[in-house]
Structure formats: C-alpha cells, structure tokens
Amino acid sequence: MSGTRAVVEEFFRRAGAGEFGRLSELFAEEVDWNVYGAEEVPWVGRRTTRAEVADFFDVLRRHLEAEEFAVHRIVVEGEDAIVLGDMRQTVVTTGDLFVSPFAFHLTVHDGLITRYIPYEDSLNLARAFGVA
C-alpha cells in the first residue's frame, strides 16, 4: 500500500472501524499537521511528529463520540488528496452535537501521510464544546 489513494482509503477505513490506535502507523515520523480552531478545544493546533499524531487520536477519541462520518469523495492528484464528506459527533463533556461538512487535505509521500490539514466548522465545534 504505497499509492496516495490506497493510503488515504486505508486511513478512513481504520477511522471508520474505530481503529484509532492504528492510525498513526500511516503517518511519517515528521508531519505537517494543523487543526484550526479555538485553543480551548484539546486537539486543536499544530503537530509535527508521529507520536503527536497518536496523541491527537487518543485525545479525540476521549472527547468525541461519532454518530456519523461519511466520506463522499476522494480526489487525488499525485501525492495530494482532498477528502470531502460530512460528520455528526457528540461532545462527551457537554453532550452537545457537532455537525459539519469537512474537507481534509492529505499528502502521501513514500507510502506515508506527511500532511494532514482538516477544514471543518470550527465555530460550531467550539460552541458544542462550550467555549464559544
């Protein structure tokens, strides 16, 4: 599994199956990672290592319960992929629902993800998290 599409599809297969502990295996040791949003949301911010990626998924898993996560399209051009879809998740601490369309920009180099930039409704997330 080294092609961009195959790696991205495997990432979303594992995420959909709840295999969060195995997601970081798909990332390079050094990554360009940034999740935009309110600083009070525990998983927001920049990460640069595979270990930080593993921590992200651990933190995310403790704070969100997925109700729905649907990938509608994956567009690949060379090493870059754009993934479009919709999500519906419950924030554990507040019980509030976070609903948003999403777009992820992932880059795959030598069979590993080197860039991960998600775009989602960060204001809606902050509100569901109780910080906006």
Rank of each mutant, 00 (worst) to 15 (best):
E9G: 02
V31A: 02
F12H: 02
E25K: 05
F11Y: 13
E30D: 09
V8D: 00
N34S: 11
G3P: 03
V8Q: 00
P42F: 12
N34P: 03
E29K: 08
F11I: 05
R22G: 13
R5F: 02
E9V: 06
E39L: 15
E30P: 04
E40P: 01
A28S: 14
F27I: 13
L23K: 08
F12L: 03
E40F: 12
V35C: 12
G16M: 10
E9P: 01
G37Y: 00
F12E: 06
E9S: 08
Y36S: 11
W43M: 05
V8E: 00
G18Y: 12
A6R: 10
A15M: 09
E30R: 14
V7D: 02
E19N: 12
E29H: 07
V7P: 00
A28L: 06
A15C: 05
E39W: 15
A17I: 08
L23Q: 05
L26K: 00
E25C: 06
R5H: 01
F20P: 04
W33V: 02
A38I: 01
G18W: 12
G3Y: 04
F11A: 03
T4K: 11
G16V: 11
F27L: 14
P42G: 12
T4G: 00
T4I: 10
G37V: 00
E29I: 07
V7G: 02
V31T: 15
G3A: 09
F11S: 03
A6T: 06
N34L: 13
R5C: 02
V7A: 03
G16W: 13
R13M: 04
G18S: 08
V41L: 06
G21Q: 13
G18M: 10
E19C: 08
F27N: 14
R22T: 13
V41I: 15
T4W: 02
P42R: 07
T4L: 00
D32S: 14
E39Q: 15
S24G: 09
E10F: 01
E25Q: 04
F12S: 02
V8W: 01
A38L: 11
A38N: 15
V8C: 01
T4V: 10
G16F: 10
E40D: 15
A38M: 12
R14M: 11
V7L: 07
G21A: 11
E10M: 02
S24Q: 04
A28I: 08
V8L: 09
A28C: 11
G3K: 06
R5I: 05
A38C: 14
V7E: 03
L23V: 06
E40C: 14
L26I: 01
N34Q: 10
F11G: 03
R22H: 13
Y36H: 11
F11C: 04
F27R: 02
E9M: 04
W43Q: 07
A6M: 03
G21P: 13
R5S: 08
E29D: 11
A17H: 06
S24R: 04
E25G: 03
N34T: 09
R5K: 07
G37E: 00
V31E: 01
